[in-house]
């Protein structure tokens, strides 16, 4: 439940964390930047932003953030991962040289649509967000190749590829809701806290 004292953190190691903080602000929530383990204390939710998943993963390991994140999730902290963040949430990955956090029962293929010239915008229908399709920006994006039975598929591209999924208090998006003014994905996440 949101209310006084709801604190949402945005992992601020590298990538588009400022954009996520702005989206939270539009929802009248003040987010906090997370760079060290101590910043995780007292958070109801954590957003792992888009960025370079190898850079974020490397810094996360080097700075001793992996263990504390896993512990906070076990204690009930919700996590939303967008693009690179989705790769980090995955249980299994293709084309990612590091070990993901392994929080969700999903297999994620990195750079799955090709290089930057293949990056695209499209609208994705996500029933959990209402009838209006979501304007989704895919940048060197991943997608979910396989999802376990406990994973709820939220949104697919027209060709059927899974690009949005939820498992308990974990939300994975292959695209970048932080690059649009539409705050429905962030609101969905805040509702999960």
């Amino acid at each position: 439940m949101t209310g006084n004292g709801t604190r949402v953190g945005v992992l601020a190691l590298q990538g588009a964390f400022a954009e996520h903080l702005k989206a939270l602000k539009r929802l009248k929530l003040s987010g906090v930047e997370v760079r060290r383990a101590a910043d995780l204390e007292g958070l109801s939710g954590l957003i792992i932003p888009g960025g370079e998943s190898t850079t974020i993963g490397r810094l996360m390991a080097d700075m001793g953030l992996r263990g504390p994140i896993l512990r906070r999730v076990a204690e009930g902290m919700a996590v939303m991962g967008t693009c690179a963040g989705m790769i980090l949430l995955a249980g299994k990955t293709f084309d990612y040289p590091l070990e993901p956090l392994g929080l969700m029962d999903i297999t994620v293929r990195r750079n799955a649509f090709g290089r930057q010239v293949d990056s695209f915008e499209t609208s994705v229908t996500i029933a959990a967000l209402g009838a209006t399709p979501f304007p989704a920006v895919f940048i060197r994006a991943p997608y979910i190749e396989k999802a376990g039975t406990g994973v709820e598929a939220l949104g697919r591209l027209s060709d059927g590829r899974l690009v949005a999924a939820r498992e308990g208090k974990l939300l994975a998006l292959a695209f970048h809701p932080e690059l649009t003014r539409d705050t429905r994905c962030h609101a969905l996440f805040v509702g999960m806290l």
Binding site: A12, L13, Q14, G15, A16, F17, A18, E19, G50, G51, E52, C83, A84, Q116, S119, V137, I139, R140, H176, L179
Partner: peptide, 8 residues
């Protein structure tokens, strides 16, 4: 947007 992902 790709440049935004390179930030930091």
């Amino acid at each position: 947007g790709l440049a935004q992902m390179l930030k930091g």
